[in-house]
Amino acid sequence: MTSRTNLILAARLELYSVRVRYSKIAVLQYHHETDKLRPWNWPSTLESRVQPCALRDYRMSHQMLGPCCLCPMAETTQPDFVEAPIYMALVGPCAGEYVASCARDRCGYFVVLDRLYDRTIPIQVYPRREFGERIPPRVTHVSEEVWFQQAICQSRPLKRSFAMLDVGVPEIMNPPAPTRSRSTTTRRPTDSELLRRLDLQVWPGITDTEFQKLFVECECGLVTTRRSFEEHECIIDISDDE
């Protein structure tokens, strides 16, 4: 590529990554055939959409893949579709939230799934995988691989009898349909995380419910966090008049 072509490509990548990150109407993904961004349909059941924390399990049991990152546009040697892993961010301003991003953090694709879950976005009921159908290998983010390697180094080796049985090797065949649905809950953000969200440069803000959980207004008109309200000295005398 010429230097001019590289500059144009870099500008498009920056533009697309910003659109993906700030989109509030859909989870956007790269579409190779049109060379444009298109919505990724959020998985749903007949009753409700799948929670972010359950998307990985849904991918195993249904014919669904995560969104495509921007790598096919960034590198011509890449396949037409490069799946972005879905995982919980462990560090940074989005720590504790489920995101989808470039597996190697190369193309700039990044979207916070937790913040789109409650919005009006395109959804789809994907067909269930057939029993015995081969499941595409799970895509992981580079941060997960680092954490996994650290966990292996810190753990004790398996006993020989268990090692010979390949304990811990993931099953590659699709399991039968479960008889009972498992409850999935999303971890509630801490007060510190809510306060940090108020001053973020990317996706700042909290919901009204989170605001009421975090702050309280005194009769004197001052607003404090609920944690510091115990130390607040009200300037209004609310004692009974004698």
Rank of each mutant, 00 (worst) to 15 (best):
S23I: 12
D80P: 04
Y16F: 14
N41Y: 03
F81I: 09
R21F: 04
L90P: 04
C53W: 01
P39R: 04
M64F: 08
E14L: 08
S101D: 12
T45V: 09
M88S: 01
M60I: 05
Y109T: 12
P43W: 08
R38C: 06
E97V: 03
M88T: 11
A89P: 06
E83P: 07
S17Q: 12
M73F: 12
L9W: 01
L90C: 03
I25P: 02
I86C: 11
A26I: 12
V20D: 10
C94Y: 04
G66E: 03
I8G: 14
D105C: 05
A100D: 02
I86F: 04
R104K: 08
A54Q: 00
Q29G: 11
P85R: 08
Y58L: 02
R19M: 12
I25F: 10
S61K: 05
T45W: 10
R21K: 13
V82I: 08
E47A: 10
Y87A: 04
A54W: 01
L28N: 13
T77V: 11
P72Y: 02
G96H: 05
D57K: 00
A95L: 10
L13T: 07
V20P: 09
Y98E: 01
A89Q: 14
Y16S: 04
C102M: 08
E47K: 11
E75I: 07
V27E: 08
S48V: 08
P43Y: 08
A89H: 09
N41F: 11
E83A: 01
Y22S: 15
M64V: 13
M73P: 02
A74Y: 04
D114Y: 08
T77K: 13
L15A: 12
P43K: 05
V99A: 07
K36H: 03
D57H: 01
G96K: 04
S61P: 01
F110S: 06
V91R: 10
A10I: 11
K36G: 02
R21A: 15
L13I: 10
